[in-house]
Computed example of a mutant assay.
Amino acid sequence: MSQPSKLSQARPGDRGVIVQVGDHCHHQDHALELERRLLELGFVEGATVELLHEGLFGRDPIAMKVDDMRVALRRHEAASITVQLENRAVA
């Protein structure tokens, strides 16, 4: 197991478990709205994630598997999700 890191830093093939959604510091309305949207999409603590693909230009957006569903996010949105990666893919 590695140290917890932001989902935006993951590479294709990386797998892990969500340990935190949002920064729990809701001083800005858009941060609170993003956290709410992510929770509605299934990005909840304890959910397993796997990064499947990344876009060609700027590696954005990223496609991932969250439990049994596939979701695409922009990297700046994925930066608000902290994961405990199980393995690092070798690039």
Rank of each mutant, 00 (worst) to 15 (best):
A79N: 12
E77Q: 15
D60H: 03
F57A: 11
A10H: 01
E54R: 12
G42N: 06
Q28V: 12
L51V: 15
V44N: 11
E45L: 00
I62R: 11
H26I: 05
A10F: 14
R15N: 10
V49I: 15
N87E: 14
G42S: 12
D68E: 15
K6G: 10
I62F: 06
E35I: 02
R15W: 03
S80D: 03
R75H: 03
L41Q: 15
Q9K: 11
G58H: 00
G55S: 04
Q3I: 02
P4M: 08
V17Q: 14
A31P: 00
D60F: 00
E35C: 11
L41C: 01
R70F: 09
G13C: 06
R37T: 11
V71F: 12
L52T: 07
A78M: 05
R15V: 09
M64S: 04
R15Y: 00
S80P: 00
L7I: 09
G58M: 04
V90W: 04
A91N: 13
A10S: 12
A47T: 09
D23M: 10
G13W: 02
L7E: 01
G16S: 09
G42C: 10
V71H: 10
R59K: 13
E54Y: 04
V19E: 11
H76M: 06
D60K: 07
E77C: 00
R37M: 12
K6N: 04
K6H: 03
P61V: 06
R59S: 12
F43L: 15
D23K: 04
R59V: 00
L73E: 05
H53Y: 11
G46L: 10
D29H: 13
R15S: 15
T82E: 14
R75N: 02
H24Y: 07
L38S: 03
K65V: 04
N87P: 00
L56Q: 07
G13Q: 09
G55C: 05
A78V: 02
